[in-house]
Each structure stands twice: as C-alpha cells, then as structure tokens.
Design a protein around this nucleic acid. Structure first.
Lengths: 341, 341
DNA sequence: TTGTACGCGTTATCAC
DNA sequence: GTGATAACGCGTACAA
C-alpha cells in the first residue's frame, strides 16, 4: 500500500474544470431546480469523467446528519440478535441509513461507553437492547438528544422512548400454563442471569404467576439464573436433577439452555419427553430439527428488528409515535419435547 | 422527539468560557505537550462542567480519518460470520475503531453498492467476504485507495490485498480423504452455490482431488450446489437419495447442510452413521450436541476475524504485511456421524 | 507557551 | 439562474 499520495477531487476541482462556481456544482449534485440544462450537463460530464464522489463526512458536518444508526446488542453470535439485525438492516437500507454495530457482551460499563461513542459520532439514532437499566443508563438517556428505540424488553424505568418486544411476562406465563395444563406441577425454570431483565426478571415473573394461580409456590431449588448458552443449560440442569426431589418438566427461557438441558438429560439416561418434559424459548433454527423437536415459544426477531427500525426512523422524522409500547406477536409451538403427564 | 432546539457546546464555547483560544482547547483535548498546567486545568474544568464532547465528524473531516471500518459479509445470521464479527470487534475496539456492518445476501450488485458507500463515507478500511470476484469487483479494487483485507477464501484474481481464510481445497481434500480411508467410495457432496467461490469451487475441488487420487471419478448425480441452509441440505439430500444408485457417505460443505441431510435421512428411515455417513464443515455450536454428534471440519471464525482485523490495521498504519496469504489452522473433528464401512 | 488564521468538503444565504 | 461567502467543528502552520 503506502504508495504515492492520491488527492481525491473535491467539489472545488469540479467547479474549476467546469468553469462554474462550487454552488452550481452543489446544486447539480443535489439536483436543485434552479440550474440551467446547459450547466447541469457540463458539470455532470466532468463528474463522470473524474469519477468524483461527494464526501459524506463533510456533508454530515454541515447537514448535522450522518445517516448512521448505532445498534447496541449483547452479542451477535446469538442467533436471535443476528436475525434481529437482519430485520433492521433491510429497513435501514431502503431509507438510506447504515449501521454501526456494537456488542456489549452484557457488560454494563461497555454499554455506557458505546452509547457515548454513538453521541460523539453524531449518529442519527440508537437501537438498544439493554442488559439492565442502571442509574448510569438513566442519566445518559435523560441527557442525550439522540432518538432511541429499545429492543427486547419492556422498560418501566423510562417514559421517554418507545420499545419493541414481545410481552415476556405473558409469554412466559402461557408457556408455564401449558405445562400445568399437561398436568405438570413440578416445574423447574432455567431463567436468565439477574442482570438481564427480560429473561432474568420478566420471564421468571410469568412463570411464578402461572404457578401461583394454581396454588403452587415456586421451589427455589428448581430455579437457576444463568447465561443463555448450551453449556449453562447443561450445568443448570445437572444441579437441578441432582436434588432428591426432581421436577417432571423444565422450562428453559432460551432454546440454548433447553438444548443444554436435553443434552444433560440424554447423557444421564432420562428420556425426553417420556421421563421429563422440556420447554424452550425463541424457536431458533435448529429447534425444529433437533431430536426431540423442541416445544418452544416462537419469537420473530426479524419482525422485531424491522419494527424497531421503522419506529426509530419515524422518531427521527419527528413523526408522532403511536404508542411507546410495541408488542410483537409470539406463539407457543408445541412439538415433541413436552408430554402430558 | 421534537422538543426545543438544543445547541451543543463546541470547542469555541469552551474557549470563550475558559478565556483561552480554540487552539489551546484543542491542544488540551489532544493532550499536546506545549500547554501550561494552569490553562490545562482551567480548560479541563470547563470541559467537565459543560459535559463537552468533541464532534468526531468534524474531527474526521480535518484528520481525514474516521476510525470506522466497513465489514461486508453475505449474512449475519450465519453463525460462522457472526463469530467472525465478534473476532473483528474485539480487536477493533482495542484500537479505537468502530464497525459499519453491511450484509450482501450474496447479491453481487449489492456488494458493489456497499463498497461504494464505504468509499463515500471515507471509511478507513474494509473487511470483505466476497461472494464472487467479478469484473466490477476488480474495477473497484483497482481504483480504490481503501485498505482492504479479504476474508473466507483465497483470491487468485487480485494481487494487491491480503486475505485470511482456511485452505479450503486442502481441508476439503482431507475431509474426503478421511471418508475414503473409512472405506467409502460412493461419496456424495453438498457443495455451495456456484456464485460462492469458497464452497462452490474450492471445496468442490478438494473433494474431486481426493477422489481422483484413488482413481474414482466424481458422480455428477451425487453433487449438489445449493445455499448453506438446513432446508437446502434437506432438499439436496432428497434428490441424491432418490437415485437408484445411492452413496454410502455424504460430505456437506457446511454444517447447516449436513443437519438438513441428517434430518432427511432420519425422516426416511436411514440411520446415521449405520446406513450412511455424513460429514459436515464448520463445527458450529450445535454440531457437538446434535445427535448424532457431527463429524466435521472445525474452523475458528473468531480467529479468522481477529487476524483479518489485525492485518487491516497494520495495513492502515502502513506496516508491511508479511504475506498476502494467511491461512488459519483448521482440523478434522471426528465424532459420531461417520462410520467405517 | 499561546493565539491568529486558514483549511478540511460541503451546504445555505445572500446578492447579482 | 448563478456566484461569492459564511458557516459546520475541529486541527495546525505560523506568528507572536
């Protein structure tokens, strides 16, 4: 690389070559009406000849608009978020926006850092899947003027911005309710870590609600709060199944953990669903081809992402948002990993 | 949010408040040595008090450096690329770069569009997983001055830029060779689409090489070239297994297709690996928990991504690149989906 | 050590 | 219609 210095042509050079002023060039480039056909053609010819391309950074400086949107999520290798991104990107592209991607790995400090970078870079908006809404988060969003849409969980701590998610409490309630209707009463839960409100609080809540409704108190020994990985699901299940009193069903708050659970159960000679039922959450790609096929709560991450991006763009255009709360439909998909008792 | 207009403080405002010149403020902010402790403190106090944050767009304009790197990949919901991104991001973050993410969905025209956007946005560099190196691609890279590193496949069509990948021909050769050593001679292949050089050309080549070496000519009826999805693997296998003459082993050029294949085989009463062996490629997360556990070629996408990003940063710093060709290690992981005949 | 003045590439507001 | 010219927010020779 490091060869000779290549000086890119600017609007000024074009103006000189075409014997017009920079303003005329600018007008042609932004096809303003007030410019004669003759000059237009002359300028366009030079533009084509030189292969001139306007500098979007300079444009951004004067327009105070970068057409860049920051997306902050826990991790991209989680298929749920990957699909969510795909949903956002499609919408972004049609509106001329690009995406600056950042992943927090559930590190709260890192989240704050990235949010500040988003501001420094003068991004036009933020799509944010919060891990936990801390005091620092609150302070940031109180101060910032950046349009934001939250993703993946209901946020009661803030009133300012809209959020897009499924109703986690309700979905979790219904999943648990399904198991209860299948005559299960001894139901364990593999929830998310405490720091993750969506799966560590709301889904846990729905589970407890459903149990309580039929007069069952949740057994704390059958409750784990770990990350959503196959390995963590495996470990959580090993701890739960090593108790003397064992559950007849396990409700995992992610398919990842459900897979880890089944893996453990299989390894230790339990048959799923004959000996124990396992319910997942998300409906990732392999949920339907894994054996046994996973009974799970199907989310539509592409739809969530697309909706969030649309909301954000509306917000940036100062279009009034209908409602802060945007619940995307989900549905319980019954397959083979659960069984009536 | 359409509220009142909030005017952000600029370096000028800070200068005024601190009774110094803008250059002094600038010097303090970039901690230049030639500034007295007294002024430094005074400026820093104001900065803290006002919560001033420098505008990176303006900075980018004058420095001709945006600290933004464009990543262009086929699709993010493919776990291989998601992990690759994670590898790049970690390195990028430590060097103060952010990532502009774009996905092409294997659409060649879209690739060209994004490359041009990368230029217009004055990005500092490009990480690119090409689908197919067309004439338009060649023209772009001949013209552009953007440092670039290619990812995922060897590129013989260009000499200018380094690439990071596993040796696809060799890996595929060895995978096929393994099946041959297990006494298989009737081996089918689920390759990638023609447009995808890595899996549609190189891995197919390695397969043919291995067969040829032992005097077998590849049966074109046992060869499919489809996308790397579970569904495509399923369809491909259904076509191959509907022939009168059936293979005893299937080599899928991605775990996705391998899973689809096994799914089909299982559904139609074939036992894997007793009746037919299946070899995958990639070693995605679920390869080791799927039943049967997948025999596959393990790649390390995180390493590929991190290496590519390091190479790119070196290139941007004008550090001389050791070698254009950067092969990352891979290894055959033998599990349960293949069996000796 | 500090300040002045100019430039980065573009758009917008004026005159003409 | 068209062209100067002043912004946008920052860095940096150069002068002081």
């Amino acid at each position: 690389m490091g060869g000779g210095i290549i000086i890119k042509a600017s609007i000024k050079d074009i103006a000189k070559k075409a014997n017009v002023s920079v303003s005329t060039v600018s007008r042609v480039l932004n096809n303003s009406k007030y410019v004669s056909e003759e000059l237009k053609e002359r300028v366009l010819a030079i533009v084509k000849e030189t292969g001139f391309k306007p500098n979007l950074v300079a444009k951004g400086l004067v327009n105070k608009k970068t057409n860049l949107i920051g997306i902050l999520i826990p991790r991209i290798s989680n298929n749920f978020f990957a699909k969510l991104i795909e949903g956002t990107e499609e919408v972004a592209q049609t509106y001329g926006y690009n995406i600056l991607l950042s992943t927090s790995y559930n590190d709260l400090q890192r989240e704050i850092e990235y949010l500040n970078i988003f501001e420094d870079r003068q991004l036009d908006g933020i799509l944010f899947s919060v891990t936990e809404f801390t005091e620092e988060h609150r302070a940031f969003f109180e101060r910032t003027t950046l349009p934001t849409v939250f993703i993946g969980q209901k946020l009661e701590q803030q009133e300012k911005y809209p959020y897009v998610t499924i109703d986690n409490v309700k979905a979790s309630y219904e999943a648990t309710k399904y198991l209860i209707n299948q005559n299960h009463t001894k139901i364990a839960i593999l929830a998310g870590p405490e720091s993750d409100t969506a799966t560590g609080t709301y889904r846990l809540q729905g589970y407890k609600d459903a149990l309580e409704e039929v007069g069952i108190t949740a057994n704390p020994l059958w409750q784990s709060m770990r990350f959503h990985t196959i390995e963590d699901g495996y470990i959580a299940t090993s701890k739960i199944m090593s108790q003397v009193d064992k559950p007849t069903a396990i409700f995992a708050c992610s398919d990842q953990q459900a897979l880890g659970a089944i893996n453990y159960l299989h390894e230790y000679g339990y048959r799923v669903p004959e000996d124990i039922s396992v319910m997942g959450f998300d409906d990732v790609d392999l949920a339907s081809i894994f054996r046994p096929k996973l009974t799970t709560v199907k989310q539509n991450p592409v739809d969530i992402g697309a909706t969030a991006m649309r909301l954000l763009i509306d917000q940036m255009k100062n279009i009034e948002i209908q409602s802060k709360e945007n619940f995307i439909p989900y549905r319980l998909v019954v397959r083979e990993s659960t069984k009536k008792l």
